[in-house]
């Protein structure tokens, strides 16, 4: 095998295939460096200009079609029923309907923010390995052991709006563990990493609570149907 030689050379043309030894803590960009590149001018800049134009046009059309709401002047002695916060806080306001203010207004939002901040510092997030692509029985048991008491709590407080997505997403997560699970589903689901399951659960719960707050709550925060009673 005389055609193989070990040599130290930095010229890519002379030695097209090389081995790079990279320390574990080396930044990932070292690994990405050799991809195909384009000039930022014009390729990126043109796309940015088009993007700005689309944004301006879409907003201008929306502004011609729909007017921003304006009600009567603020009157502290005349409380509207219901009094709603802006839409992006209605998920929280909906939670306030189930739990005491210290839990719904302080504890849960604080937990959510802390949870989001620490995401990149946790191993399960940094690894993009599917839940079933490594030993999973113990993890699944732990997850079940967490979900069960949480569900009981949700039933006790009658928070169906959180209970339903929680159970649904846990069932989807656990589906590949069921022997009768169809192959296509198993292939698809078992590749989803745990971090994605958790985030999807969070987004599902937050969106459902927000949508309920926007469309399904009327006077006294009672349940209303938007198509029958209108939107409050």
């Amino acid at each position: 095998m005389s055609q193989f030689r070990l040599e130290k050379n930095n010229d890519a043309r002379a030695v097209p295939r090389r081995i790079a030894l990279i320390r574990r803590e080396a930044p990932a960009r070292l690994l990405e460096g050799r991809e195909e590149v384009r000039m930022a001018a014009p390729h990126l800049l043109v796309r940015e200009v088009i993007l700005i134009q689309i944004c301006v046009v879409v907003l201008a059309v929306a502004s011609l079609l729909f007017d921003a709401p304006l009600e009567g002047i603020a009157d502290p002695s005349n409380t509207p029923n219901p009094a709603k916060a802006p839409w992006y806080f209605l998920g929280l306001q909906e939670l306030l309907h189930y739990f005491p203010p210290i839990v719904a207004g302080v504890l849960l939002p604080a937990l959510a923010i802390i949870g989001v901040v620490v995401i990149p510092y946790f191993r399960i997030n940094v690894e993009a390995v599917g839940f079933y692509e490594r030993p999973w029985r113990r993890s699944l048991a732990i997850l079940g052991a967490v979900t069960a008491p949480v569900s009981v709590l949700l039933v006790a407080y009658r928070v169906w709006a959180v209970l339903v997505p929680t159970l649904l997403i846990f069932s989807l997560l656990a589906l590949p563990a069921v022997p009768r699970c169809p192959g296509a589903w198993r292939r698809r689901l078992s590749r989803v990493p745990l971090s994605d399951w958790i985030m999807t659960w969070f987004v599902a719960v937050a969106s459902i609570l927000t949508l309920i707050g926007i469309f399904f709550r009327g006077p006294g925060w009672t349940w209303t149907w938007p198509w029958r009673d209108g939107i409050f």
Partner: peptide, 11 residues
């Protein structure tokens, strides 16, 4: 307006 006042009061 009313929307502004009560939205902020709730928050």
């Amino acid at each position: 307006d009313q929307l502004a006042f009560w939205g902020v009061s709730v928050g």
